[in-house]
Design a protein around this nucleic acid. Structure first.
Lengths: 163, 163
DNA sequence: CAAGATTGACCAATCAATCTTT
DNA sequence: AAAGATTGATTGGTCAATCTTG
């Protein structure tokens, strides 16, 4: 067999179109509210969870699944907006430490309701809880293989509890 | 309820991470083979299907779900690579017509085996046909609402039969 | 004026170095 | 030399005009 089955093609096309639709809709709503894009939310959340000790960019890369330079450029923009602070690392002279600012926390808290409402409208209201759970379970078969060395798993956009 | 349920969040995070993983893997394989990105394949396929009469950019936009300027820029690059030809439209002085070249067809035919093999390895080999069909059906509940005026549905990356 | 299509200017993503420290 | 992180240069994507014809 050198061509995908009809069921494979059907799953592939719906997967791509659905995730594109959801992402575009959520990004559009954030922009309409004058809020930064989803990538900022994911980054701010991870940095906020790190607390006062902060987080190293290389750790952020792994959690956000971004390339090294992507993380660097993303942090550039978020820092320029005053939502995080970068400082040289004490223990390791090569590294830096990233911490969230008060304004960063405030912005993350303003993003969440818009994000949450979109997820409810676009997913929760359109599919039953049991179906959603079953779908997520089934999709696990298609996940990326765990990179060597990482035993704890992480998803792309891991939202928190309500602010 | 103002926060998404756990099942909604689980589905959202797996959806995003799985589709990102699949897309990145396929794009990486195309690049490794010296082939153009997936977007070129989708465009070339639609243009090739239009045959000798060609296709208008505005029709391509609808099928590829791209913005007007996105289509224009994409066609710029594909044309510069010699894979398509743009000509002014006879019936409508405002419009243009896009046709595929021999080299364009050849390139599309070279992309397909790589694309097809990736879909088989990443999807077909990891999930049963019945499960894949059920998954695709269930995901239909999350699709974008049909835009007014379009009665025939289309997916983002609609692959053809084997070349 | 609306539709089809393109373009200049700007923002974001990518590649290949580069720099510093371990 | 390898790890952590950044940066210059190029490409790709987006916004707001712009141009031409219906």
């Amino acid at each position: 067999m050198n061509t995908p089955s009809a069921s494979t093609l059907a799953l592939w096309t719906t997967l791509v179109s659905v995730s594109r639709h959801l992402l575009e809709t959520i990004e559009a709503r954030l922009k309409a509210e004058g809020l930064p894009p989803l990538a900022w939310y994911d980054a701010l959340l991870e940095i906020e969870k790190a607390g006062n000790v902060g987080i190293r960019p290389f750790a952020l890369e792994q959690r956000l699944l971004l390339p090294q330079y992507g993380t660097s450029r993303l942090l550039d923009r978020i820092e320029k907006a005053g939502l995080i602070a970068r400082a040289p690392c004490e223990e390791d002279g090569r590294g830096h430490v990233v911490r969230i600012t008060e304004e960063g926390m405030a912005t993350r808290r303003r993003i969440w309701p818009v994000y949450a409402r979109a997820l409810i409208e676009l997913i929760g209201n359109r599919i039953g809880a049991d179906d959603a759970t079953a779908l997520a379970e089934a999709l696990h078969a298609l996940r990326a293989p765990a990179p060597p060395g990482s035993e704890d798993r992480i998803a792309t956009a891991a939202p928190p509890e309500a602010p």
